[in-house]
Nucleic acid binder design. Structure first.
Ligand code: MN
Ligand code: MN
Ligand code: ZN
Ligand code: ZN
Lengths: 155, 155
DNA sequence: TTCGCAAATGAGAATAACTATCATTCGCAA
DNA sequence: TTGCGAATGATAGTTATTCTCATTTGCGAA
């Protein structure tokens, strides 16, 4: 996982956070910056509200849980984050890369792999059309077990 | 949807409910029979715990909500029912037909269409294998809108 | 048939993951 | 700087589901 040290300089492509918030029509506040920072650090791609709260708390960055929930929802509505509903019972968020993808979730360690398959995507459209529907969105979750035992992703 | 009228006679394949429960290693109790009956009637294929509870209550068949939850979980573990997690926030159950299928959920009316696509299924296996995983299970939910307005399934 | 008793149920308390309320604080435009 | 509407924190409230425990029930043994 990449660290924050020796981060590349700002460019049109890598804006810093305040710009992101401005563009999303959200005013620049400390809690919003901290939450966004966490996702942009990229250490963990898929985070639940509780995890965001814990990670910030552990880093001495206190943001109330209510605010974490509010901010995550706002970011998702603004298109900064996308939300997923894994079987775990709580939703997880990730930075919106602009590229749709689906997920493989390891049953041993919870590790998440991403994939995109054009064939599957096309077939879905076809199936929906055949049934008289147009797709708003879809979710494909593959729950799987690592073939290399013990699971190398398990820490 | 198929009706209960002119149901075929019992055969090895179409057992009546007490047999189902016996086979599943569950003792034959009134609440279990009532819940199973509801699903075997086939009027509604995909039911949440709350819906099962309401349908039974409305029919004068009182079964406590706690028992409905317990029984649904037991049936699912016994392989009589399968459980799905639509985006709604509550899980729904359906009779285990033995034939895997995925779902299209209408965003207008909540109507659920079922489909099976061999191409998608095969691709999933391939993708999992490529990533070093073997699939335990998967869920593909297509959230869609009816192209014929207004939605003909909306009651 | 009737017993005995482990298993199942019902009523309601408890939990987990959110969501709403509201008094206080903060960001920012003037 | 100041003023004020938006954002936050603390906490109460919801919703879906699970747990606890006193009471009832299914069913094999007698
Ligand atoms: Mn992802
Ligand atoms: Mn189905
Ligand atoms: Zn996809
Ligand atoms: Zn499938």
């Amino acid at each position: 996982m990449r660290t924050l040290i020796n981060r590349p300089r700002h460019t049109d492509h890598t804006m810093h956070k305040p710009e992101h918030l401005k563009n999303a029509g959200l005013k620049t506040t400390l809690p919003r910056l901290k939450v966004l920072q966490l996702f942009e650090d990229g250490t963990e791609r898929h985070l639940s509200a509780e995890e965001v709260y814990k990670l910030l708390s552990d880093a001495g960055e206190l943001v109330s849980l209510a605010t974490v929930y509010r901010v995550l929802t706002q970011f998702q509505q603004a298109g900064l984050l996308v939300q997923h509903h894994f079987d775990s019972g709580r939703s997880v968020f990730e930075l919106n890369s602009g590229k749709h993808h689906d997920h493989i979730v390891c049953q041993q360690c919870g590790h998440v792999e991403e994939f995109y398959d054009a064939t599957i995507e096309k077939r879905q459209e076809k199936i929906a059309a055949e049934h008289g529907f147009v797709i708003d969105e879809h979710a494909l979750y593959i729950y799987a077990s690592c073939t290399k035992q013990p699971c190398p992703n398990k820490k």
